[in-house]
């Protein structure tokens, strides 16, 4: 019952947050000086043409009406029609989101696959050279921004070894092999850096758990090695790690904006940057809303997972 109440409260907060975020995003773009109709037609356009276009865009209506129209559209996946390209924005966003999702999810997998074993190992051997070496390596990894990592990987694999393309994108169903080749470097640049950060969290969570009494009990019971790690340490250290994972997914989503620029990948980030450059503000507004919404959803899911994973939090 308490659990249900908790989830209910979180859900209400989640919905209110989405509402406030949509007002912030809409309001922010609304303060922009300059009329989209004037921007589209140029300053020399006749007042009648501007008025007609304004009516077409719907920007002659009060802001509150425009907001409700926009939000109402979002609920059905309608992001409006771009003032610049005159194309519907929703389908473009969903295409681009698919590309970015590939990057983010594969990068998360890379981060997990590197961080879980390395972080646990460096905690188990925290007084030995191998543990310290992992710690040191992760510290260096954190100091390298993903886009710098990306440039370095391009140099090694595209310029020097010439085994992978330096950028671009291939649709998976058209050419699966080419798709994977184009995916490797951007995913590694995002994933390895996040993996380095995650390694440190896994290490410190594992160290915390290793000091607990129940680990000592398990050891004194005669358990050793792997059973302790899998049954006691990993299960308990996963709780703080899940929170970090959620934050990292958000970081990856935003990191993808930069990485897409490095590797010329047509994802959500490229769409955002191109739209800003083209002063296509309704598209900017749509992309920003999608990214913020993703962050809010991730936070909500993490909140819920947190209580599911940690029974101690359910009763309190």
């Amino acid at each position: 019952m308490d659990m249900l109440k908790y989830v209910g409260t979180r859900f209400v907060i989640f919905v209110v947050s989405i509402f406030v975020a949509s007002v912030v995003v809409f309001g922010f773009m609304a303060v922009l000086p300059g009329d989209p109709a004037v921007v589209a037609l140029g300053v020399n356009a006749s007042p009648d043409a501007v008025a007609a276009l304004r009516a077409e865009f719907g920007t002659d209506r009060p802001l509150a009406v425009q907001y409700l129209d926009w939000v109402g559209g979002l609920l059905t996946g309608d992001f409006g029609t771009s003032y610049v390209t005159r194309n519907p924005i929703g389908p473009i966003i969903s295409d681009r989101l698919a590309v970015t999702s590939w990057l983010v999810l594969c990068a998360m997998a890379v981060a997990l696959v590197t961080a879980l074993p390395l972080g646990t190992l460096s905690a188990l051997r925290h007084r030995k050279a191998s543990g310290l070496a992992i710690s040191f390596g992760s510290q260096i990894g954190i100091a390298i921004p993903a886009f710098v990592m990306g440039i370095a990987l391009v140099y090694v694999f595209a310029v020097w070894l010439r085994v992978l393309p330096s950028g671009g994108w291939v649709v998976p169903i058209q050419d699966p092999g080419g798709f994977i080749q184009h995916l490797v470097l951007p995913v590694l640049s995002l994933g390895l850096v996040q993996g380095a950060i995650l390694t440190r969290y896994v290490r410190s969570a594992t160290l915390d758990v290793m000091r607990e009494d129940y680990i000592r009990t398990a050891r004194s019971k005669g358990l050793s090695g792997l059973p302790i790690v899998t049954r006691h340490i990993l299960r308990n250290s996963s709780i703080p790690v899940v929170t970090v994972l959620g934050l990292q997914l958000t970081t990856l989503l935003i990191g993808a904006v930069v990485i897409e620029r490095v590797f010329v990948v047509p994802g959500l980030g490229s769409l955002l940057l191109d739209s800003v450059a083209n002063r296509d503000l309704l598209t900017v507004q749509g992309v920003v809303m999608v990214l913020v919404l993703a962050a809010l959803i991730i936070n909500f899911v993490v909140d819920i997972l947190y209580t599911v994973l940690d029974p101690r939090l359910r009763s309190s």
Partner: peptide, 22 residues
């Protein structure tokens, strides 16, 4: 604290791009 949580959904890069756009 809720306002704080909401702000977490607007990372620095995204805010800066929004500011840059406007």
């Amino acid at each position: 604290m809720r306002a704080n949580d909401l702000l977490l959904a607007f990372p620095a890069l995204l805010l800066a791009i929004m500011f840059g756009a406007v």
